[in-house]
């Protein structure tokens, strides 16, 4: 009757012919209730979630690098403190997500190893370089904006631990997006050179941000099944469209333009039509051939190695104290 806590006790995949279990799983999904870690679930559901949550966690951790690049060069002490808080949040988001993935029966060590071995992906957006301070603005406004668009529906994802982690992440992300918008707004309304810097950053981050929603619906291999399982609630193209519609008026307030000559309002639908996305570039970057892929993984590996002594020291200290306590108790 007793076992490990609900969040931690990995359910064993049942025999596939166990239709009662499958029926109960399908009924839970159909009733819009949540699947919890100890419930029976199809192997493919588990595999899909591990892939998606791990990729999401890795993105948070790798995503610390492009912005970490500017912490020492932030233009004021306040901007620096804010940027540090934001990058720290990203580490925290990575931790929430690794915890959620662990409820599915994988360990964080395994996931870190798979990332460092290049066997699991992270969002392609983090393979672009951050060339100026204005990139901190563009990342907050566009990259975090796109991330929020993706993450809000995930708070209703059918897998309980993932949905709960997303609630926490979404609450914190809105500060990220606003700080980015504010950086751009300040630069855009500053000197001519500052305005130009802001425009340059938006020009470089706009298209990669649209790619963050993933391939178009007719080329997205996992969408249909993920929608049926209520892991995903909207398709890639639906979310992308919503993002464009929100950004266009915001760009006007920033007095910056979006680098798309085909961008125009489609009166009947109220949606903004946008130009062709360069999916070849997307595939190239995803495959490892973006501007910073190698640098990002090398940096992550180095940080992991250089932190080894800290992990070992903490473990040795804990072991020593446990032995001392045992002696006292004896």
């Amino acid at each position: 009757m007793y076992g490990l806590p609900e969040e931690r006790n990995r359910s064993q995949p049942a025999e596939p012919e166990d239709t009662a279990l499958r029926d109960s799983f399908e009924a839970t999904i159909a009733a819009d209730e949540r699947i919890e870690p100890r419930d029976w679930m199809p192997d493919e559901y588990r595999t899909t979630l591990v892939r998606q949550i791990a990729q999401h966690a890795h993105s948070e951790i790798i995503g610390m690098q492009p912005e970490g690049n500017w912490i020492t060069r932030a233009p004021s002490l306040q901007r620096k403190a804010i940027l540090m808080a934001k990058v720290q949040d990203e580490a925290g988001h990575g931790m929430y997500l690794y915890s959620a993935a662990e409820t599915l029966g994988v360990s964080r060590d395994q996931l870190v190893e798979l990332l460092l071995a290049g066997k699991q992906k992270y969002s392609s957006i983090f393979n672009y370089p951050t060339l100026s301070w204005a990139d901190m603005g563009a990342i907050g406004w566009l990259v975090d904006g796109a991330a929020i668009m993706n993450q809000i529906p995930l708070t209703r994802c059918s897998y309980g631990p993932y949905a709960r982690a997303m609630v926490r992440v979404c609450k914190e992300e809105s500060f990220h997006q606003r700080q980015g918008f504010e950086i751009l707004h300040t630069l855009s309304h500053g000197t001519g050179a500052q305005h130009e810097m802001a425009q340059d950053a938006v020009n470089r981050w706009w298209w990669p941000s649209l790619m963050m929603f993933g391939p178009p619906d007719d080329e997205s291999p996992h969408t249909a099944q993920s929608m049926a399982w209520k892991i995903k609630r909207f398709t890639n193209d639906e979310l992308r469209q919503r993002f464009v519609d929100i950004c266009v008026p915001q760009a006007a307030v920033l007095e910056l333009t979006l680098p798309d000559p085909d961008l125009r309002l489609d009166e009947p639908t109220g949606n903004y039509r946008y130009g062709e996305i360069d999916w070849e570039e997307f595939k190239r970057v995803l495959k490892g051939d973006g501007p910073c892929n190698r640098q990002r993984l090398e940096h992550r590996t180095r940080a992991h190695e250089e932190g080894r002594w800290v992990r070992e020291a903490a473990a040795a200290y804990a072991a020593k104290r446990a032995r001392a306590e045992e002696r006292l108790a004896a």
Binding site: S99, E102, A314
Partner: peptide, 30 residues
């Protein structure tokens, strides 16, 4: 390595008058 760090469940009391609530988990040596 981390793999030997036990898992801990975390409970937080938001403010006086409320009970501690489960918020998540983490790994730590002690």
């Amino acid at each position: 390595e981390l793999r030997d760090w036990p898992l801990w469940e975390v409970f937080v009391r938001a403010r006086r008058g409320l009970s501690h609530q489960h918020v998540g988990s983490l790994h730590a040596p002690d």
